[in-house]
Design a protein around this nucleic acid. Structure first.
Lengths: 109, 109
DNA sequence: ATCTTATATCGCAAATATACGATTAATAAA
DNA sequence: TTTATTAATCGTATATTTGCGATATAAGAT
């Protein structure tokens, strides 16, 4: 893999892929599910619910945060995460926009 | 990474993550975009449009096909791909379902 | 000041993904 | 039958992800 080929695609494609990558692990889906159901900040609870070590969960949280899908704030000795709904809506919008062309009738297959 | 931890999550989480993984590369987003715009089967055209070798494109097509997002049929010496809109709609549905809880008001962050 | 609790980060090992050239397979064209 | 053409697969190198234990950090409790 000589060079990073990802750079040679459009920004929209890259952003969408980036976002999808953050969703591309069941642990991260599970984290988002927990956050969505609570709709308020939790932290160690996620660790206790998932079948993963604390350090691994922390890493997954970091990835979701880097992708902008969740927001994290520090609250004393503990951290507080919640879903960034705006980012999700944006993802949905971009995603639909990209594929909502001509999907009326199938010409083949 | 001792064991495959992905197995220890629910089927829905796994399926969603699997689908997201297929979307987690700009090349595959670009392929889907081309297919969506044409709405008819093309094949070598994809290779000529993307900045990647033929074998690499073929690999990406295979992944999209395995994830069920596209359908491929053989047509003589050439292959013919198109988007599986049903799979996309299912993905959208599952995705929304998972996160459309309580997103009315934000309690934190 | 020391201890406890909650999280993040580091370093490493194993697993996967990405990319390509070379080769194969399968059909059409000569 | 030989020769192109099109696309899939194989082998391989490199990059990235996943996961954990150990350690660091930061604040509250004693």
């Amino acid at each position: 893999m000589a060079i990073n080929k990802k750079q040679s695609f459009g920004k929209k494609e890259q952003d969408l892929a980036e976002c999808a990558k953050a969703l591309a692990h069941p642990a991260r889906i599970a984290i988002l599910k927990v956050l969505a159901q609570h709709n308020e900040c939790i932290c160690g609870e996620i660790v206790s619910v998932l079948p993963l070590a604390q350090s691994t969960v922390s890493q997954h949280l970091k990835e979701l945060k880097n992708a902008g899908l969740i927001i994290g704030t520090v609250d004393g000795p503990r951290s507080c995460y919640c879903i960034n709904w705006k980012a999700f809506e944006k993802f949905n919008r971009e995603f639909s926009f990209l594929f909502n062309h001509l999907k009326t009738e199938q010409a083949c297959c």
